[in-house]
Amino acid sequence: MKKRHRIAAAALLACLACLACAGAASAQSGVTLYGVADASVEFVNHAGTVPTAANGFNPGPANQVVRLNSGGLSGSRWGLRGVEDLGQGLKVNFVLESGFNLDTGTLQQSGRLFGRQAFVGLQSATLGQLSLGRQYTSLFDSMANFVPAYFATQYEPVVMLTGANFREDNTIKYSGTFGALTAVAHWSFGTGLALPQVVAGGAAIGGNGENPGQFRRDSAYGAALTYGAGPLAAALGYDQFNPSIGSGSGSFRKAAAALSYSFGPARLIGGYRWGQNQGATGAVIGRDDYYWVGGIYQVTPALSLTLEYAYDNLKNLYGNSALANPWQLNLIAGYSLSKRTDLYFTAAYARNAGLALDSASIGFANSLSLGNSYAPASGQSSMLGMAVGIRHKF
Rank of each mutant, 00 (worst) to 15 (best):
L368D: 08
V120C: 04
N330T: 15
N320A: 14
A39V: 09
K173Y: 11
M160L: 14
A20Q: 07
S131E: 08
L80V: 05
S359G: 10
S98W: 08
A377Y: 01
V44P: 00
A375E: 10
L161Q: 02
G79F: 06
L305Y: 03
L370I: 15
A220Y: 05
T300D: 13
A257W: 01
G89H: 08
I245C: 09
Y155Q: 13
G72R: 07
N211T: 14
A9E: 05
G354E: 03
P51N: 02
T153I: 06
A10E: 11
G190K: 06
I285N: 15
G115D: 01
N58S: 03
Y374H: 03
L370H: 14
D38A: 03
W292N: 10
G115N: 02
H186G: 06
A220K: 12
S336G: 07
S367H: 05
R67G: 08
I296V: 14
I362C: 02
F114W: 15
A144T: 09
S124Y: 08
R81N: 15
P231W: 09
Y344D: 01
Q380F: 00
A387R: 11
D169F: 00
G89K: 04
L113C: 08
L13R: 12
N58V: 07
A223V: 03
N366F: 14
P243V: 06
N320Q: 14
N242W: 06
P326E: 05
P61K: 12
L139W: 01
R216C: 01
Q278D: 08
S369M: 11
R4S: 15
G35K: 05
G264Q: 07
A8L: 10
R67N: 10
V184E: 13
L132A: 11
V388Q: 04
D358T: 00
Y174N: 02
N165W: 14
F263A: 15
G75N: 14
A183P: 14
P61Q: 07
L68T: 09
V284F: 03
M383P: 07
G379S: 04
A194D: 01
T346A: 15
L86V: 03
A54N: 09
K254T: 13
T306G: 03
P326K: 05
G105L: 06
A149R: 03
L307K: 05
T191R: 00
L307D: 03
T341C: 02
R253Q: 11
G270Y: 05
F146S: 01
L181E: 01
A365L: 00
A27I: 09
A37G: 11
G379Q: 06
N69I: 13
S76C: 04
S98F: 04
L343R: 02
A302W: 13
T52A: 05
G75H: 13
G206Q: 08
A27N: 00
A180R: 09
K315N: 05
A223P: 03
L268G: 08
Q380A: 04
Y34G: 11
S369D: 07
S142V: 10
T126E: 15
G270S: 11
D141A: 07
G190C: 04
G99P: 04
Y344N: 02
C18Q: 05
A183M: 15
G23N: 04
T281M: 10
I285G: 02
A9T: 07
N101D: 14
G295Q: 05
R391S: 10
S98P: 04
N165C: 06
N366Y: 13
G71V: 11
Y374K: 01
T32M: 09
R67E: 14
I269N: 02
Q108G: 15
G248V: 08
L225M: 09
V299L: 12
A220S: 11
